[in-house]
Design a protein around this nucleic acid. Structure first.
Lengths: 340, 340
DNA sequence: TGTATTACTCGAAACGTTTCGTGCAAGCGC
DNA sequence: GCGCTTGCACGAAACGTTTCGAGTAATACA
């Protein structure tokens, strides 16, 4: 591959002059610019990214760490971030953690080895201990996405998680449901904790005493949600509605309802957090709490790029977005309401 | 950030010795290895990727270029490739072309600037002219995925496209369909060309003369498939079945059927190429020609890594995988068959 | 007309590694 | 006891850039 040296000698100028015209970092005469650009085109020169990064100390690389790109929510996040980064002259590394904390740390290490200029991190845990580990492993501007980690100075972009639970439970309560099942995520994850707390609060506010039997952790996982839903449905007194904390768990619920020979919403109402791109092809069309994925992604990368550009310390601010309840077909009044 | 120099001075050895223990590239006494490893751990040293790449001439980077990571087919491809690469000590860049040929070339350029060691490319076009452009732009081992480009020396991993069309059309013909619509992709794409040719052949083999009215290009696109399907349905003599060349177009078809107030498979049968992860939550469950996405991805990256490792020229071989017809609910016998 | 300024170009150092030739001591065969 | 190999450690060069101080010619100012 040709180097800047080849360009220089072909154009009959010094290496530093070529650099100046490429980066427009110093005044160069029109005539020399011409010659250099011709030389570049003629030999097909492309600056060597690693050499540039090494010398300038700026990798122009950004890392995105998320649970699973296969999840449509995360893939749209990735697309948005990639697009914005490219426009700003950054390339992106996208890596999957599979919600495995050790793997997350391993990926963080790889990113650090690449000297990424910044990180958007959808972390798998959000307790203080993990926060400390993160702090020791991360030495670049970082924004947390869809989770907030205490004891940590990073900016965060999240949903208003409490509101998400509240509008879902209120919808169900308004329909007349009293026995409401909840498929939650996993302890030490802020989305889990905050949504769960708001669920309980909202139920109590509506005179429903949350029952431990009906609130089950399903790890944000489709298969676990399937199993948990079947178990819930097999209870002597099954819930008349179930609320799930993720889009994948919603799918698990629906599969379980089908597999149990029941029908939604006739036998059971279903709501979840996270929308689907083509609701009309689903059976039934799901009532969901939808989150503005693209807007959130855009905001997070904007915050990150601003922090990188300004070289300012993070503010530790949390930017929240509002979820929206979309009522479709999967929720209805309970079939027969038992006397309270 | 600490450098190898800091490690060296803390361990009381030369820089080259540190390098030798890190890379196990030369014999080092057990005692010195100890000291060096302690020093590394103590100061939290991580080799500088760009410096390594620059000096060694090996970026340990692999590029994956695909149409749209948001498409579940491609996101599973990306996951597989990322996983295999990481295991082999490579990092991956994943970029979306949006099926825009100029954007594809731009991304190729970025990849070249990063001096990626290899490329798996799901190209947007596959005519000879594009092949020539590719050849001039690509100077690293490359495997083409899901497309084959003539006049090009690259290895390719694809579906047996002819078989995909054949089994779909044969299924429809066996059910008794005579007026079969086809939603194709876009000219100059090998998946389009090969599938279309096989469609026509198979129809003729079954005594069905393909009609130009019923074969419409929808660009592999969901929205265009929606429109095309509505148009097909509004024909004076609408088809009794439609076959689409992609999973997204299948969704477009189903939406169009719903929007037209019709019912599948009662009023029309629908088949497509590409499966969905949770067919049972769809209405109706789709009959599809499924392709082994993960296996294909795995094979392609294996071929690429082998080519990189062996430093051998590509063989130009095409590895084909067999599609499989999965019959579910969206196909049935035509409602009333007109006399031929 | 002399001097300060500007516009341009250049050469060399530096970024953090790997690689290679060299040196040195110990062990070996004869 | 001598020369050879072997095992280990070292120093310096090189990878392809950017950056910076310095040099030169032309222009502007007084």
């Amino acid at each position: 591959m040709p180097t800047i040296k080849d360009v220089a000698s072909r154009a009959g100028v010094a290496i530093s002059t070529v650099s100046a015209v490429i980066n427009r970092s110093a005044p160069v005469s029109e005539e020399v610019i011409q010659r250099v650009e011709e030389a570049i085109a003629a030999i097909g020169y492309l600056p060597h990214g690693a050499a540039k990064a090494l010398r300038s100390g700026d990798s122009r690389l950004i890392g995105l760490i998320l649970p699973d790109i296969t999840n449509p929510f995360f893939s749209t996040v990735a697309r948005v971030i990639e697009t914005v980064c490219m426009r700003a002259g950054y390339m992106t590394f996208v890596y999957n953690t599979d919600e495995d904390i050790d793997h997350e740390m391993r990926i963080l290490k790889m990113m650090r080895a690449q000297r990424v200029a910044g990180l958007v991190l959808i972390s798998t845990r959000s307790d203080a201990e993990h926060g400390r580990r993160l702090m020791s492993e991360i030495n670049v501007p970082t924004v947390l996405f869809s989770s907030s980690v205490p004891a940590t100075p990073y900016d965060a972009v999240t949903l208003d998680e409490a509101m998400a639970s509240r509008i879902a439970i209120e919808h169900l309560a308004a329909l007349g449901h009293r026995r409401i099942g909840v498929l939650t995520g996993r302890p030490n994850v802020s989305t889990h904790e905050e949504r769960l707390e708001a669920c309980v609060e909202t139920m109590r506010a509506h005179g429903i005493e949350p029952s431990g039997d009906l609130i089950v952790a399903a790890n944000f996982d489709q298969a676990q949600a399937f199993g948990a839903t079947k178990a819930l449905l097999a209870l002597p007194e099954p819930p008349s509605a179930i609320f799930a904390f993720s889009n994948l768990m919603m799918i698990g619920m629906m599969r379980a309802v089908v597999a149990s020979g029941l029908s939604c919403p006739r036998d059971i109402s279903l709501v979840g957090i996270g929308d689907f791109e083509w609701p009309e092809i689903m059976n039934p069309q799901m009532t969901v709490v939808s989150m503005p994925a693209a807007e959130m992604a855009e905001r997070s990368i904007e915050i990150l790029l601003a922090e990188i550009a300004s070289k300012r310390a993070p503010t530790g601010r949390r930017t929240m977005f509002e979820p929206r309840l979309i009522i479709r077909e999967s929720t209805a009044a309970p079939r027969l309401s038992l006397p309270a």
